[in-house]
Write a protein that binds this DNA or RNA. Structure first.
Length: 833
RNA sequence: GCCGGAGUGGCGGAAUUGGUAGACGCCGAGGACUUAAAAUCCUCUGAGAAGAGAUUCUCGUACCGGUUCGAGUCCGGUCUUCGGUACCA
C-alpha cells in the first residue's frame, strides 16, 4: 500500500466524471424548494489567488451540503469582465481587450474546475459579452425612462492617472481606490443614477436584513448618512436675498457670531463684484480650486477664509453678523452655507480663534467653564444667553426654537443625506456603452430596444490619454436620432463597471434569455440569493448599488423582491507572515509587492485541491482573517491520508470475505461509543456546516470521529455493519469539504452511485442518549470530583452517591451544607459555610 | 471624534441556553517500527507549587468592580487592538 494517496490522478478523474455526468447542472423545478448560493464573481485577471480559493471553497461546501440535503441548488459563476486592466493591457501589449479577457477567463475557469467547485457552467455570464451588456443597457434605459438617469454639469472626482471620473464611493481618503492617485475636481457633464431617491428605502430595509453582518449594515448606514435638522433663513442686510443654512443645532442660534459660505457658493462672486473685497475673495477662491480633495479635507490644517463684506440678520434676535467664505464648508452638503457657532462647534471655534471673532456660549454644559472655552462645548446642557429660551434643556430648545421660527416662516424641518447620486460615466473604452444619443432637436434620446446592444466599436485607438477612446471610432459616433431620424451623436462614455455587477445575480436565473433580461417566473423562483459570500471590501460599493438596482427593478415590476441578498457572509482576508525591510515579522494580506504570496497552483501540485480546501475551511472561521501556515497545510494533508488509510485498512480487512452489511448490532460498550460518535458527528456537521457556517468546528468533529475509528480498530472486529456505517458516514459528511478523495473511496467500497448525489444522513437521537453520564461535583461552585451515574439519576440518589465519595466527604467534614444545587446529568453543587 | 468588531495556552482556534475552560489542529518532548531516515502509530503537552510516585493544591479567558450556588459567557466602568468613516454643519 502507498504511504500517500495519489491526489493528482484521483482529482482529475472525478473532475472529468462530474463534467461528463453534468453533475452540477441546475434546472428549474417549481415543485422543489430552491437554494441560491452565490459567490461574488471575480474580475478575470487570469490568476486565481488564495482569497478566491477561500471564497469559492466556502460557497462550494454550502452548495454541496444543500444539494445533498434535498434542495434544488443554484450555484453559478461568471465574470466581472469589463474594466481598466484589460484596456491597460491593450495599451501596453497591443492585444485587443476582448482577446486578453477571454484568454484570462479560460485560464481561470480551468483553475476553478481544478479545485472541484460545483458550478453550473451553463449559466455562466460575462459582463463584456454583448448578450449580457445588451440588457445592462436596457436596464439603464429603464432608469432613464423613469427619470432616474440624468446628465448634469457638475464638479466631479477625476483621477489623473486612470484618466476618468470616479463615483464618490470610489474615492478613498481623497485618492483613487484603484491607483491611489490624489483625485482632483473637474467640471464635466456626466451621467448620474438617482440613487438618492432610494436613500430612505436603502436605510430602512437594513433593519430587515438580519442575515447580514452588523458591520456591513453599519457601514451602509454611515454612508447614507441621514441627518435630521432645519433649514434656517437669514436675510442678507442690504440685499433682497436670503441666506439659507442647514443646521442640526437650532438651539444654538443665539450663539451665531458669523456665517460661512463655501468658496464655490454662487452668492460669493455676486456680492463681491465691483467691491473692495473682490480681489482678495477671488484670490482665495483661486487658491482653493488648486487644492486637491485630500488637502482640503485634511483636519489638521489651519482654518483659512475671507470676509466678503456682507452681513446677515439673525432671525431670532435681529443681530447683524458678518459673512465669510472658507473651504471648511462644502458646497455639496446641506445648502453649501453654515451658521457658525464657535462656542459649540469645534471647526467654528478654530475659525473664530484664527479670525478673532466673538465666541458666545448659549448652552451651559455641565463641568465646562463656558466663559473661558479652550475648545467647543458640543455636549448637551441648559440654555443660557438665549432670550426666552434661557433655562430650557437644550434638547427641548431644539424643538421650541425650530417650531417658533417655522411659524414665522424662517425655518423648515429638513433631512440631509451624505449619499450622493451615482456618477456612472467613465471616459474609458472597456465598458458597457451608454445607450444614449444626443439630437439637437430632441435632446438626449435612448437607443431603440430593437437596436440594442449598442456594440463597442473595434476601430478605436487606445492611448490612455485625452478623451474617451470611443471618440476615435469613425463608425461609432454618428447615428440617426432614434426619435426623429435626423443625424445625431452617440454618447461616447461607457458605464462604471459596477452597473454590470449590480444585476448579474439576476441574469444567472435565466442566463440565455434572448428576449428579456430574465424571465419573471424564473427570477421569482430563484431569488433572493439565499447565501451570498464575498469580501467585505464590497460592503458599500457593490452591495449598495445592487440593493438599489433590485429596489428599482421591483418598483417597475420586473421581480418580486426589493432586496437581493437574504444572507451575507463576508469572508476574512487570507494573510501570510513575512519579514519586512527592518526584519520584523509582520502578517499582511498576500500581495506581490510584499512577496508573501502562496499560489493555489503551487499548493494543489504539492498536496492537491482537497487539502487546500480542507486547510482553508478548518484553520479559521470563515469571517475571520486566515493566516497561511505551511505546517497547517501539512496537518490537513496528514488528515486526508489518515482517512485514506483507514478506508484501505477496512477494505483490506474484508478482502476475500463479503462485506458484512447485515443489520447493525450493538454488542458492547465500544460499539455503543462508536455508534454515539457516528450520530454526534452527523449532528455536529449538519448544524455547523448547514446553519452556523462554522466549517472549522465541523471538520474538527469529523477528525474526532476518525480518531475514534482508529481506536476502535485496534481492539475490535471491523468487518461489521456498524463499522461499515461509520466508514460510509465519514465519507458522506466529509464529501462537501473534500469531494474528490471521498468520491474515490466511496467508489472503492463498491458503490455504483455517486456521493455528490446522495442523501445527507440523519442522526438517531436515541443513539445520542448515553446510559451513563459523568456528573461533576462542586463545592461552592468549584470543581472537586466527578462521578459516573446512570442517565437521569434523581437528585436524592445523586446527592447521596456524591456524599459517599472520599474527596467530598473530606471536603465537607467540618462544613455545614446550606443548599444543594442539582442540574440533572450535569452538576451537583454543595453550597457550604 | 463617531460607528462596528475583537482581546482565551508557544501558535490557529473550541466552549451553541450562565454549568468540567483550552475540543480539533499546529509546534514541541518522549517512545514504538527501521541498519538509518522519511512516513506511520502510541503517550505527554496552560502556569506555578508540593511529592519518590500514583496524586494533590493554587492560579488562570485584557484590566477593575458587580450580579449569581456557579461568569470566557450577563451588568457597570477602564485599557488595548483591528476595520470603517469624517471639516457632513
Amino acid at each position: 500500500m502507498q504511504d500517500r494517496y495519489d491526489f493528482k490522478s484521483i482529482e482529475k478523474k472525478w473532475q472529468d466524471i462530474w463534467k461528463d455526468e453534468e453533475a452540477f447542472k441546475t434546472e428549474e423545478d417549481y415543485s422543489k424548494e430552491k437554494f441560491y448560493v452565490l459567490e461574488m464573481y471575480p474580475y478575470p485577471s487570469g490568476n486565481l489567488h488564495m482569497g478566491h480559493v477561500r471564497n469559492y471553497s466556502i460557497g462550494d461546501v454550502i452548495s454541496r451540503f444543500k444539494k445533498m440535503s434535498g434542495f434544488n441548488v443554484l450555484h453559478p459563476m461568471g465574470w466581472d469582465s469589463f474594466g481598466l486592466p484589460a484596456e491597460n493591457a491593450a495599451i501596453k501589449h497591443g492585444a485587443h481587450p476582448v482577446e486578453w479577457t477571454n484568454n484570462n477567463i479560460n485560464e481561470m475557469k480551468k483553475q476553478l474546475d481544478s479545485l472541484g467547485i460545483s458550478y453550473d457552467w451553463e449559466r455562466e455570464v460575462s459582463a463584456c459579452d454583448p448578450d449580457y451588456y445588451k440588457w445592462t443597457q436596457w436596464i439603464f434605459i429603464q432608469f432613464f425612462k423613469n427619470g432616474l438617469a440624468y446628465k448634469k454639469d457638475n464638479p466631479v472626482n477625476w483621477c489623473p492617472d486612470c484618466q476618468t471620473v470616479l463615483a464618490n464611493e470610489q474615492v478613498v481618503e481623497g485618492c483613487c481606490e484603484r491607483c491611489d492617485t490624489p483625485v482632483i475636481k473637474k467640471y464635466l457633464s456626466q451621467w448620474y443614477l438617482k440613487i438618492t431617491d432610494y436613500a430612505d428605502q436603502l436605510l430602512d430595509n437594513l433593519d430587515r436584513l438580519d442575515g447580514w453582518p452588523e458591520k456591513v449594515k453599519a457601514m451602509q448606514k454611515n454612508w447614507i448618512g441621514k441627518s435630521e435638522g432645519v433649514d434656517v433663513k437669514f436675510p442678507i442686510d442690504g440685499e433682497d436675498k436670503d441666506l439659507i443654512v442647514y443646521t442640526t443645532r437650532p438651539d444654538t442660534l443665539f450663539g451665531v457670531t458669523y456665517m460661512v459660505l463655501a468658496p464655490e457658493h454662487p452668492y460669493v462672486t455676486e456680492f463681491t463684484k465691483g467691491t473692495k473685497y473682490e480681489s482678495a475673495v477671488n484670490a482665495y477662491i483661486e487658491e482653493c480650486s488648486h487644492k486637491s480633495e485630500l488637502e482640503r479635507t485634511s483636519l489638521t490644517k489651519d482654518k483659512t477664509g475671507e470676509f466678503i463684506g456682507k452681513y446677515a440678520v439673525n432671525p431670532v434676535n435681529g443681530d447683524k453678523i458678518p459673512i465669510y467664505i472658507s473651504d471648511y464648508v462644502m458646497l455639496d452638503y446641506g445648502t453649501g452655507a453654515i451658521m457658525a457657532v464657535p462656542a459649540h462647534d469645534q471647526r467654528d471655534f478654530e475659525f473664530a480663534k484664527e479670525f478673532d471673532l466673538e465666541i458666545l456660549p448659549v448652552v451651559a454644559v455641565e463641568g465646562v467653564d463656558v466663559d473661558h472655552l479652550t475648545e467647543a462645548a458640543s455636549a448637551e446642557g441648559i440654555m443660557i444667553n438665549s432670550g426666552k429660551y434661557t433655562g430650557m434643556n437644550n434638547k427641548d430648545a431644539i424643538i421650541a426654537i425650530s417650531d417658533d421660527l417655522e411659524a414665522k416662516g424662517f425655518a423648515h424641518k429638513t433631512i440631509n443625506y451624505k449619499l450622493r447620486d451615482w456618477l456612472i460615466s467613465r471616459q474609458r473604452y472597456w465598458g458597457t456603452p451608454i445607450p444614449m444619443v444626443y439630437c439637437e432637436d430632441c435632446g438626449w434620446v435612448p437607443e431603440k430596444d430593437e437596436n440594442l446592444p449598442v456594440l463597442l466599436p473595434t476601430d478605436v485607438q487606445f492611448t490612455g490619454k485625452g478623451t474617451s477612446p470611443l471618440a476615435t471610432s469613425k463608425s461609432f459616433r454618428n447615428c440617426p436620432c432614434p426619435k426623429c431620424g435626423k443625424p445625431a451623436e452617440r454618447e461616447i462614455d461607457t458605464m462604471d463597471t459596477f452597473l454590470d455587477s449590480s444585476w448579474y445575480f439576476l441574469r444567472y436565473t435565466d442566463a440565455k434569455n434572448d428576449n428579456s433580461a430574465f424571465d419573471t417566473k424564473k427570477v421569482n423562483y430563484w431569488m433572493n440569493v439565499d447565501q451570498y459570500i464575498g469580501g467585505v471590501e464590497h460592503a458599500i460599493l457593490h452591495l449598495m448599488y445592487s440593493r438599489f438596482f433590485q429596489m428599482f427593478l421591483n418598483d417597475i415590476n420586473l421581480c418580486d423582491y426589493d432586496e437581493p441578498f437574504r444572507n451575507l457572509l463576508t469572508q476574512g482576508m487570507v494573510t501570510k507572515g513575512y519579514y519586512d525591510s527592518k526584519n520584523n515579522y509582520t502578517v499582511a494580506k498576500m500581495s506581490k509587492s510584499l512577496g508573501n504570496v502562496v499560489s493555489p497552483a503551487e499548493i494543489q501540485n504539492k498536496y492537491g485541491a482537497d487539502t487546500a480546501r480542507l486547510f482553508i475551511l478548518f484553520t479559521a472561521p470563515p469571517e475571520k482573517e486566515l493566516e497561511w501556515s505551511d505546517a497547517g497545510v501539512e496537518g490537513s494533508y496528514r488528515f486526508l491520508n489518515r482517512v485514506y488509510r483507514l478506508v484501505m485498512e477496512y477494505i483490506k480487512n474484508i478482502r476475500g470475505e463479503k462485506r458484512n452489511l447485515d443489520k447493525i448490532e450493538i454488542v458492547n460498550s465500544a460499539d455503543r461509543h462508536l455508534n454515539y460518535m457516528i450520530n454526534a458527528t452527523i449532528k455536529k456537521v449538519t448544524e455547523d456546516a448547514g446553519g452556523r457556517f462554522n466549517f472549522n468546528t465541523a471538520v474538527a468533529s469529523i477528525m474526532e470521529l476518525v480518531n475514534e475509528m482508529y481506536r476502535y480498530m485496534q481492539n475490535e472486529e471491523i468487518n461489521t455493519p456498524l463499522f461499515n456505517k461509520a466508514i460510509e458516514i465519514l465519507l458522506t459528511v466529509l464529501n462537501p469539504f473534500t469531494p474528490h478523495i471521498t468520491e474515490e473511496l466511496w467508489q472503492m467500497l463498491g458503490h455504483k452511485d455517486r456521493l455528490y448525489a446522495s442523501k445527507w444522513p440523519e442522526y438517531d437521537t436515541k443513539a445520542l442518549i448515553k446510559d451513563e453520564v459523568e456528573v461533576i461535583i462542586q463545592i461552592n461552585g468549584k470543581l472537586k470530583d466527578k462521578i459516573t451515574l446512570p442517565n437521569n439519576t434523581e437528585k436524592e440518589v445523586a446527592e447521596k452517591a456524591a456524599k459517599e465519595l472520599k474527596k467530598i466527604q473530606a471536603a465537607l467534614s467540618d462544613k455545614e451544607i446550606i443548599k444543594t444545587i442539582f442540574v440533572p446529568n450535569r452538576i451537583i453543587n454543595f453550597v457550604v459555610k
